[in-house]
Design a binder for these strands. Structure first.
Lengths: 209, 209, 209, 209
DNA sequence: GATGAATGAGTGTTCATTCAT
DNA sequence: TATGAATGAACACTCATTCAT
């Protein structure tokens, strides 16, 4: 696709995710893209259309990632009939974190959503879905299947999902969705979150067997 | 203090916490306060000064609340030498949630911080301190003291604090810092968070004894 | 009323009546009023509001004039029970022409209407009413009353009204609603129209008696 | 000639005659013609050139019509040495009205002229010539010749021309040069104007003989 | 305490036009 | 013939702010 349009999208997201949609002017965007303001309107109907294209792309990307993770983990569990917490499974979570939470594009859109969700119903819906409903729902499903397979003691799978997701969410918010996303902050998250995931599944194992 | 100034602050915060500082115009504020724009400049040096006064008041309020909770809980524990999870202690947490996370003023400032933290170092500092550092630090201290007192098995108190705080943070973000703060959402949080706190301490008790 | 606002209205009408509403920019207006563009928006909500205020004022003015002429001529005729064409009555028409067709304000609004009526339903309505319906209706009424009083031979009063109004309308369009309204053009109209009115009534008299 | 160019001219005139030259953008034109904006500049030097071509074509067309009518009516009168008002002559006027005032192209150009004449000297000249000077001059000539031939009582032929033309002009302005040119409005004009022409010549006949 | 009037800088957007393809 | 991509100038309008009253 057109390089200029691509760059407009890139720069726009960079700025939107930092300052919020309305605090970023077309002028700001053009200054960085190195084009004149009128050029933007060749590629986009208006400012709003930039935002919409970004969100559309995000939903596609996020849906793809989420469903791929879901499928992979469920397949893995089904096939091996073993407890979670294997090296391979931990790696799956890690891969997902890297591509979803720490990837420039997704991270930025989610920052943007977290700014705009306070006044925009649509944004609020997306924010809730991708931050809470979808990940919690997925994790609950995983635990529920483990319970049904007798691998995990029967209990409230939703509660377990929140217990698992809570600390990850704290780490993510603190290191990945605060200030600017640097390599140091990513590492801080990795150390905290990856360690936590391992520990969690280890403890889960110990509790059962 | 002057009623008009008070109302300007109130309305400003209402709007800032929804749309972000720069997306709110003096006009917007004045429309709701029912004054002319020039009047604002009798009470405040400029727009920035409104924000600053709001932040200053928040820090005072938040500091007061946090330290009062800290003192109360530590005293309680010290005095009784008992495990946490008593009715009284749970009530303390609940009181704190009500006054800190669910109170109009504090909730709104924290929403504002969460919008502005992405591009403003100062805001980022406040956000991190009041969202993560302070509450996690406090909870860690509580657990550490319990460990030192032999009431809790020695372990990583910071890790324990995150495990405790994680789900609460998830619930708070989902129900108290999304969309608009309604009584229904508050109840959703109460149900989830208060239930969680009780369960957490119950499980902690079971694990030890 | 405020002098600046007044001047904005005056200049706006001057320009609108020459170039049409949409071809005149706020900049154009401000250049002549000698104010900054933002000042306009202190006095008017937007560009459209200037137009609306002009139209409202015109309708008031025009209604006042038309009804005063109507009343005066009908009274005159009633009282004297004589044929029209007296010096006094001719003077009334002339006075009306001067104040309505040749007056700066009304003339300009009607020019504006004649530009805008092609695409704006509202303008079309006003244009038709004040250019055709009202003057023709009034003149028809005058002739009808004369017929009922036996002063004029019974015939189609509407047709008679058009015959009377036609040439006046031609003169008005040619000399008052073309190019720019100068004293020379006004005089050209006066000569043509005043002469015509006299002649018309004289011929009308001759035809009857 | 090129179909695209033809369509550009057609659509341009449609829009110009409604909104005025400067209120119509190249974009507006291209939207309807279904071409890209840059394509216009293959066919025309610039926007102004579209207007100029339209005006040139109009002058040719109008000149042709006017002179054909002139010739026809004068010949007719000369040959028959009779009073005007014959079926055939009335039909000539009617044919002229249909092709000149009511024809899409000419009607639209004259609407355009009536918009633009207020600020453009050139347009003003064309407007005056084709709306007043030419038709009045022609009619005056007809009456003068009739007077010279002794068919009509000697009098002010210019005054007679205005008396004849006045109502027609009123009807034309009201029904053909207001709002949008519909079949209903055309019929309203036909009824009024054709009836008027007949009546006028009948009365003229009665007055003399 | 509050406001009427004004403003310079900046907002998103549209304009006619160019030019390489 | 036609268009994709770009642009400088202008557009209506909003902004935070000032200052005399």
């Amino acid at each position: 696709m057109n390089a200029t349009k691509q760059k407009i999208l890139k720069v726009s997201l960079e700025l939107f995710s930092r300052y919020g949609y309305s605090a970023v002017s077309i002028r700001d965007i053009c200054r960085q893209v190195q084009i004149k303001e009128s050029t933007v309107y060749y590629h986009f109907k208006n400012k709003q259309a930039i935002l919409e294209e970004l969100l559309a792309r995000f939903e596609q990307t996020a849906e793809g990632m989420m469903s791929r993770l879901e499928q992979a983990i469920l397949e893995e569990q089904e096939r091996k009939e073993t407890l979670p917490g294997t090296e391979k499974q931990n790696g799956m979570y890690e891969g997902f974190f890297e591509q979803y939470l720490m990837d420039g594009f997704c991270n930025q859109v989610m920052r943007l959503l977290s700014i705009e969700q306070f006044h925009d119903k649509n944004m609020q819906g997306l924010y809730d879905y991708w931050m809470f409903e979808r990940p919690l729902g997925f994790q609950e499903k995983v635990f529920r299947l483990l319970m049904e397979a007798g691998i995990l003691e029967k209990s409230d799978s939703a509660y377990l999902a929140v217990k698992f997701y809570g600390p990850i969410f704290v780490y993510a918010q603190r290191w990945l969705f605060s200030g600017s996303l640097s390599e140091e902050r990513k590492n801080a998250f990795r150390e905290a979150a990856y360690g936590y995931v391992k520990k969690f599944f280890r403890e889960m194992g110990e509790a059962k067997w």
